[in-house]
Amino acid sequence: MTATTTGLPSAEATRPRTVLVATMFGSSAAFITFAGVLLVYVRARATAIEWFDASSVELGPAGFIFATLILSIFTVQWAVQAINADDRMNAFVALGLTGLFGAAVFNQLWFIINDTGFTLNGSTAEFLFFVVNGTFIAFLIAAVAFLALTFLRALVGQYGPRKADGVAAAAFFWNTVVAMWAIAWYVVYVTK
C-alpha cells in the first residue's frame, strides 16, 4: 500500500464555525463549573467565623502564575495567527511554548499548594482552597491536552489559511482557562 495522496481529490470544505461554536459552548460550561466552585468558596469565606491566615497563602507565586498566563495568551494567539498565515514552524513553536507555560503554571501552583501546608480535611477554608485550585488544575490539564491534540493534528498536515478553526478553538478554551485564573487570582489570592 502506498501512502501517497498525490492525485487524490482534496476533501470538501467543512463549515469553519462548527468547531468554534461548540468550543464556545464547552468553554462556557467549563467556566461556569469553575465559577460554581469559586462561589462556594466566596460564600463560605463571607459567612465564616475563622478563615486561614492571609500570610499562609503568598501572593507572589500566584502573581507569577497570572503573568505566565498573560504571556500564554500572546503565544496561543501567535499560533492562530501563524497557522492562518500557513507558517507551520511558527505555529508549532507557539503551541509548544503555550504548552510549556501550562506546565510552568502547574509547577507553580503545585508549589503554592505545598507551601501553604494546608490539608484537605483540615478546615472548610483549607478544603475549599484545595478544591478551587484542584478544579483549576483539572481545566488547565484539559487545556494543555487540547493544545497537544491540536499540535498533533497540525503536525499531520491539518489546518491552514482560513482553516484554522481547530487551533482557534484550542486558543479559545485556553483563554477561558486564563480567565478562570484571573478571577481566582483576585478572589482567592489578592483579597484572601
Binding site: T5, L8, P9, A11, R153
Partner: peptide, 10 residues
C-alpha cells in the same frame, strides 16, 4: 479519525 476523514476526498 477526525483528521483522516478529511485528509483527502477519497
Amino acid at each position: 479519525d477526525a483528521w483522516a476523514d478529511r485528509a483527502t476526498g477519497d
